[in-house]
Design a protein around this nucleic acid. Structure first.
Lengths: 159, 159
DNA sequence: TAAACTGTTGAAAGTCATTTTCAATATTTA
DNA sequence: TAAATATTGAAAATGACTTTCAACAGTTTA
């Protein structure tokens, strides 16, 4: 998304950068928000985490943080363009770091086993950018998600 | 989706067709299921309805149908390929008729007012078909959704 | 055609991710 | 540092969706 951004996406590389981005919108830097963003940096760039998983991992690391704080932080960060919200499963949302790299990657989901594969395809983002421009929309985000059955599950089901 | 379908999508044009499709999978034709599908045919082809909206409309028409039946019917019909499930809002799912026509249409959502615009773009479906083929997936469905702010909401917010 | 079989329905209770409430606490600003 | 206000944790609430179960309806079989 944002292949031709009006305002460049903030790149958060250190704690103080995050503070600047938050304060600009009247939000505050808290250790909880820092920890959440650090977690996304510690996992692979294209790794998706649900609120539940984020909470689990942080608690395992010994952090004291509640699940409601996770949800609130995710909202704020999606609003600031730091994170990207993904619809990968039926019943919950997933999040990943929003960076120029991930902006052209899309998802292929196996509806049987839930496995997710990524693929890069710039042309899709370009179509999205073109459509929004034509219609005068401000582009916030776009998602291309394919649902199917992976080879393994096809065999398993004797398809 | 299904630009090169293995099995052509069933086209449901009359009550008896629906019966055939349902029975083939061990399901039964009921007046409730018929009423739901008729509702989709009465609205514009590209119109999306949530479970709640379907229920509301049918009750308003004087039909006696419960919300749980709606949810159950939607599941069955998505499973049969008659309907398409869409992720247009944060908190609920929308459904539309699954036809060759709609298979190349995608959605542009205003996150402020919720307005949804449609656009046709075959190249997107082609990319999806190509990716799934390359990876050996069976393609079930794909969605390209763009989230942004529509011109009217931009003005309203003084952006 | 009627009985047997089995899928479906409505109503109400249950589930579960996410949100909200509220008092205590932390960050920011003056 | 104090005042102003955003944030947090815990628990309760919300709300979309699912499930349970007994009554009922479509299908099948004899």
């Amino acid at each position: 998304m944002m292949t031709e951004p009006n305002q460049p996406l903030p790149r958060i590389n250190s704690g103080s950068d995050l503070k600047t981005v938050l304060n600009k919108e009247g939000f505050r830097l808290t250790s909880q928000r820092q920890k959440i963003l650090e977690l996304f940096r510690d996992v692979a760039l294209d790794h998706h985490l649900s609120a539940e998983e984020i909470h689990h991992q942080l608690v395992e690391q010994g952090e004291k943080i509640s699940i409601s704080t996770i949800y609130r932080a995710l909202h704020v960060m999606v609003g600031l363009g730091l994170l990207q919200e993904l619809e990968l499963a039926e019943d919950r949302k997933y999040y990943e770091l929003s960076t120029p790299f991930t902006s052209h990657h899309h998802h292929l989901v196996c509806v049987q086993c839930g496995a997710v594969q990524e693929f890069e395809e710039v042309s899709i983002s370009d179509v999205g950018a073109g459509e929004t421009q034509t219609r005068g929309f401000v582009l916030l985000n776009s998602q291309f998600t394919i649902y199917g059955v992976c080879p393994r599950c096809q065999n398993r089901l004797g398809s």
